Amino acid sequence: MPSIFTRIVNGEIPCHKIAETDDFLAFLDVFPCAPGHTLVIPKQEVDYIFDLDEALYTGLMQFSKTVAAAVEKAVPCKRIGVAVVGLEVPHAHVHLIPLNSMADMNFNNKLKMSQEELAEIATKIKKELL
Rank of each mutant, 00 (worst) to 15 (best):
S3H: 11
F5H: 04
T6F: 07
I8R: 07
V9W: 13
N10Y: 04
G11S: 13
E12W: 07
I13R: 07
P14D: 14
P14Y: 08
C15D: 03
I18F: 14
I18P: 05
E20L: 02
E20W: 01
T21C: 08
T21Y: 06
T21E: 08
T21Q: 09
D23A: 14
F24G: 00
L25W: 00
L25A: 00
A26M: 11
A26I: 06
A26H: 11
F27M: 08
L28F: 12
L28C: 14
D29N: 05
V30D: 09
P32I: 05
C33F: 07
A34H: 06
A34N: 06
T38K: 12
L39R: 05
I41M: 03
P42L: 04
P42S: 12
P42A: 01
K43S: 05
Q44L: 13
Q44A: 06
E45V: 04
E45Y: 00
V46Q: 01
V46H: 03
V46T: 12
Y48S: 07
L52H: 01
D53T: 08
E54F: 09
A55D: 09
A55N: 10
L56K: 01
Y57M: 03
T58R: 15
G59A: 10
M61D: 04
Q62T: 11
Q62P: 01
F63Q: 03
F63Y: 08
S64R: 15
K65R: 14
T66Q: 09
A68F: 05
A70N: 12
A74L: 09
A74C: 12
A74P: 05
C77P: 02
G81Q: 14
V84D: 00
V84C: 08
V85M: 15
V85T: 12
G86T: 15
G86Y: 03
L87I: 10
E88L: 13
E88C: 09
V89E: 11
H93Y: 04
V94S: 01
V94T: 03
H95I: 08
L96T: 00
L96E: 00
L99C: 03
S101W: 00
M102H: 07
N108W: 05
N108D: 03
N109V: 04
K110R: 15
L111A: 02
E117I: 08
A119M: 11
A119T: 07
A119Y: 04
E120H: 09
E120Y: 03
A122V: 06
A122E: 05
T123I: 11
T123L: 13
K124W: 04
I125S: 11
L130K: 15
L130I: 08
